[in-house]
């Protein structure tokens, strides 16, 4: 579903070139549930933006649902659902259901299909009670449930979430996680999410990728990630260890030869 081959993105800021993402390669098969970790500024968001067509890569090859995202942005929009935890795509002053109706029209979803889909999502996410509430009056957790619903109304085979659990309380977080797990298991939706919450990774993801300095530092199972630091059982300690050791290494590492495997691959 997602093919990334030696992807790179550089930014030029006042003459200095920074490599936000470099030489990033991975593939995600249909039905996978992948979590993406990495310290702030590691290149996670840049990667997500390239996958969703918001940013064009400066090098490498990229296919999402068989499409080149930045060139086929509109076609891609129908194949993917995108949720940004930090910002909403809903209409602030209108009732939640009005935003959904608008999404239906923007994505040209057939009315019958839409109604069935909305009923399903309402039941799963438990949002029936606040469908008529203006978005500005929703709690952060309710708003996130609304945003996830909006991203799924056109039934995309791929769902990409950028920090979907940020700022949510324990109960809302559990609700979102439970929903995503069922969506992946029952609907077969391919899910890629970025997070700083290791609970998301442990409870949801069969596969975890760690991006650091714009490169893939780890790609494997959660158990594999734990095994990196022998004798350490807590995933939090393992990730802390990895982040700290990467902070001591140079900010822009020298390019590695292509055949060199990106650290531990499971």
């Amino acid at each position: 579903m997602i093919e990334v081959d030696r992807l790179g993105r550089t930014f030029k800021v006042r003459g200095t070139v920074t490599h936000a993402v470099q030489d990033l390669s991975f593939g995600i098969e249909a039905g996978e549930f992948v979590g993406c970790l990495g310290p702030n500024g590691a290149g996670k968001s840049t990667t997500i933006k390239m996958l969703t067509g918001i940013l064009a890569p400066t090098s490498g090859r990229l296919r999402v649902a068989g499409l080149d995202p930045s060139r086929r942005r509109t076609a891609l929009a129908r194949e993917i659902g995108v949720v940004f935890g930090q910002r909403t795509t809903l209409w602030w002053d209108l009732p939640l259901k009005d935003s959904f109706e608008l999404v239906r029209l923007l994505y040209k979803v057939d009315r019958g299909v839409f109604r069935r889909r909305l009923d399903e999502l309402c039941a799963l996410l438990d949002i029936g009670d606040f469908l008529t509430t203006p978005v500005r009056q929703l709690s952060l957790g309710q708003r996130m449930q609304g945003d996830i619903t909006a991203a799924l109304l056109h039934d995309p085979p791929i769902l990409i979430l950028d920090e979907p659990t940020i700022g949510l309380d324990v109960v809302s977080k559990a609700g979102v996680r439970d929903f995503l797990r069922r969506l992946n298991a029952e609907n077969g939706t391919t899910i890629l999410l970025t997070t700083h919450d290791l609970g998301d990774i442990e409870r949801l993801c069969r596969r975890v990728m760690l991006i650091d300095h714009g490169r893939l530092a780890f790609d494997g199972t959660v158990a594999g990630l734990r095994a990196i630091v022998p004798g350490e059982d807590s995933i939090e300690e393992v990730v802390t260890h990895l982040y700290l050791s990467s902070r001591r290494s140079p900010r822009t590492p020298p390019p590695r030869p292509a055949q060199d495997p990106p650290s531990v691959t499971a």
Binding site: R73, T74, A77, R87, T89, L106, K108
Partner: peptide
């Protein structure tokens, strides 16, 4: 600057 232009780019509309 607010990053909200990103949310316009993920919709199937110009």
């Amino acid at each position: 600057r607010a990053g909200t232009f990103d949310t316009m780019l993920i919709r199937p509309v110009s």
